Amino acid sequence: MLKSVHHIAIITSDYTRSKDFYTRILGLEIINEVYRKERDSYKLDLALNGNYIIELFSFPHPPARVSRPEACGLRHLAFAVEDVEQAVESLESQGVKCEPVRIDPITDKKFTFFEDPDGLPLELYEAF
């Protein structure tokens, strides 16, 4: 039945700021960008290593979503990296604050969290 995750949709409070964050800072590739006049909304399709993964949306006055402490719903979005410390260094050099690196007690893999411009929790997970 299910084959894979097709994409993750994220609604932003500041489209320009989030577009810059996901493309320039995180390095996602723009596949397509459209403005939908009838909805006063942008839709930006983003890829990672050629794989379509995120739809970034703007909508006028989206309501705030509770994220912490551990609100019900989507908890976070995790990105696999080869070297967590190197990824943290890259993010922090661009002004992105990261939590201290921790070790997953079950897998013994390194991980940390940071946030997108709207406070959505994002994770770096040393998967390789």
Rank of each mutant, 00 (worst) to 15 (best):
K19P: 00
E55L: 10
L48V: 09
P117M: 10
P62M: 09
K110R: 14
K19L: 03
I103M: 00
G50I: 05
L2Y: 05
E126G: 11
Y125A: 05
Q86S: 15
P105L: 00
A127T: 09
M1H: 03
S93V: 11
K110N: 06
F111D: 05
L44S: 10
S90G: 12
P121E: 14
A80W: 06
R17S: 13
Q86M: 15
R17A: 14
R102P: 00
L48H: 04
I54W: 01
R36M: 14
I54Q: 02
K109C: 02
H76C: 08
R39Y: 14
P69D: 13
G119Y: 14
R39F: 14
L44T: 08
S90M: 15
G119D: 15
L91E: 12
F111M: 11
H6S: 07
P105M: 00
G73W: 04
F111V: 10
F113D: 14
R102I: 00
P62R: 11
G95W: 06
T16R: 15
A64G: 08
L122K: 05
L74E: 10
P105S: 00
K110V: 02
A71W: 06
K43D: 13
H7K: 07
I30D: 08
D40G: 13
K110I: 02
P60R: 07
H7E: 04
P100S: 02
D40P: 04
T112W: 09
Y15K: 06
L2F: 08
E33A: 14
I11Q: 12
A127M: 09
F79R: 01
Q86R: 15
N51E: 09
K3Y: 10
G119E: 15
P100G: 01
E55F: 06
S4D: 02
F21C: 04
M1V: 07
Q94L: 15
K109N: 04
A9G: 12
C98R: 01
A71C: 05
D83M: 11
F111K: 04
I54V: 11
L74K: 07
E92V: 08
K43P: 06
S4R: 04
L56N: 01
I53T: 07
G27F: 08
L122V: 07
K3W: 03
S67A: 03
I31W: 02
E82Y: 11
T112H: 12
F21V: 04
F59K: 04
P121F: 07
V96D: 07
H6A: 01
I103W: 00
E85K: 15
Q94G: 11
D104S: 01
A71H: 12
I106Y: 02
A64I: 07
R75F: 06
I30M: 12
P63F: 07
P62G: 10
E126C: 10
V88Q: 14
C72A: 03
L122D: 01
P60K: 08
E38K: 15
K109A: 02
G27V: 06
L77V: 14
V84K: 07
G95S: 06
P69M: 08
N49M: 03
L77F: 09
G50R: 02
F111Q: 08
Y42V: 13
D104E: 03
L124M: 06
I11H: 08
L26K: 00
R65N: 07
P105K: 00
R75M: 05
I103Q: 01
V81L: 13
S93P: 13
A87E: 15
C72W: 08
